[in-house]
Amino acid sequence: MKLQLFNGISLIGILALATWGATRRDAPQTVQGTIVGAAPSAAVPTALTDARGQTVPTGAYQRIVSLNIVSDPILLSLVEPTRIVAVSEHSQEPHPEGYRYAGRPGVARAADLETILSLSPDLVVASHFADEAFLSRLRDAGIVVFDLGEMRGVGTTILNIRSLGQLLHQPERAARLEADYRMRLGALDAAIPDDAEAPGLYLSIYGDSLFGGTTGSSYTDMLHFAGVDDLAEAHGYVERPRYSPEQLLAIDPPMVITQTGMGATLCAHSTLQRLACCQAGDRGARQVPQRPWTGTRAGRLRSAGTGPSRPVAGQPRPGSFDAAARDLHGVAVKPIPLPSSQNILLEAHR
């Protein structure tokens, strides 16, 4: 009985001690030194709140490590390339624009803590992929960490451009980059006449698992700007659905955007060979190189005869970038919806 009492009291003591030790806060970390460079203008806040709820001071950071493929090109467009000391490993792959990334190490992930630290960065730009523990270790070392949050295509990319512009005191460059991005997307959109648009969906097949990509992912943007009406979105699917064969048969897409070789796999499937896109065989199929630098090629499987085209949803807002693009290209371009539940809380601290 005495022994049990001793164990019980010890257990409570141990849990209390663990709680106390683990939740004891250290003195708030102050970022060492002042950031040299342009003084914040009235248009730029002194601090932002990032996707993890951390308050991050804005400034002209001089040694920046980018941990993801989206922030790599944005950062290289916003500040002098010499200030980017490392980019994500994906950007190191052979790439038509690879020269932009050359000469700096690639960091595979936030986990390469010591590699990152050895570069003595003053800013690490992360995404939601990074484990909180890694980011905490970087903050421990006095490094500012900014988390861009989840990345879900064109909409979040535009938000990322804006927040990085604010963070680095380069709102004008960010605005120009955003405008350029929208113009190019608008040009892509404008190049495809409305009556040439066809319904289809993105699909990949592994074994007999069918994966899609639609609203809330960059797949849907890829489809939209390539002149494909996303049937998955029209059928109410979101993000990265996993389809059953029956669901796919119910949609029966006349066109499937997939990866090289997967079209054959899909149409070899005993129940899926009756899909309209498979019935058309290879007639009219075009190989669309999606990421030629990795050797992965996207195949485009298209049925004979185009499906009914869907009218462009929504009207461009006057005065917006979309309107500017319309003026430039002389046609209506699709507005780019920005995520309503945005991860980046562009909360200005002045």
């Binding site: 022994l3 001793f6 164990n7 010890s10 257990l11 003591g13 141990i14 849990l15 001690l17 663990a18 030790g21 683990a22 004891r24 936030a110 986990a111 803590l113 484990d131 523990a133 890694f134 905490s136 270790r137 421990d140």
Partner: peptide, 27 residues
């Protein structure tokens, strides 16, 4: 997941549970 990037908060959480826990379990 492993233990990389684990910090002092994790240690503070685990030390009493593991070290003292083992000691008391020895009873």
């Amino acid at each position: 997941r492993g233990v990389e990037a684990k910090g002092r908060h994790h240690l503070a959480l685990a030390v009493p549970m593991v070290v003292l826990g083992t000691a008391v379990a020895m009873s």
